[in-house]
């Protein structure tokens, strides 16, 4: 249990605002938004699997840069996240 409520910040996931606690990873923002992170080669939706930067399933675009491992990147205010890969 956190000792005190952590500060909140807002990012956008596919254009919609998502509020996360400070220190949250981008993967968490995508999960809160109810989005899959990427679409697989055969068109399946995929989300985070390993949570530690190994599996590459959580790849998203962050501020226009593609293929970012969202589980290893912390949210920053105003960050634009897109789940197109």
């Amino acid at each position: 249990m956190p000792d005190s409520a952590p500060e909140a910040l807002t990012v956008t996931v596919n254009g919609s605002p998502v509020v996360v606690s400070s220190g949250a990873t981008v993967a968490v923002a995508v999960a809160i938004a109810g989005q899959a992170c990427r679409t697989s080669v055969r068109g399946e939706p995929r989300g985070s699997l390993c949570g530690m930067g190994i599996c590459f399933e959580c790849r998203v675009s962050i501020n226009g840069r593609p293929h970012c491992r969202s589980c290893q990147i912390l949210c920053e205010p105003g960050m634009e996240v897109n789940t197109d890969g």
Partner: peptide, 29 residues
């Protein structure tokens, strides 16, 4: 890292590593 074994449906979102889900919760989920 965790060892993952394939079974039908294991690629669905919200099927995660046990440590993977814990890491996500520790990261704010």
């Amino acid at each position: 890292r965790e060892r993952f074994l394939p079974f039908p449906g294991w690629t669905l979102p919200n099927v995660m590593g046990a440590g993977g889900l814990q890491a996500m919760v520790k990261s704010g989920l």
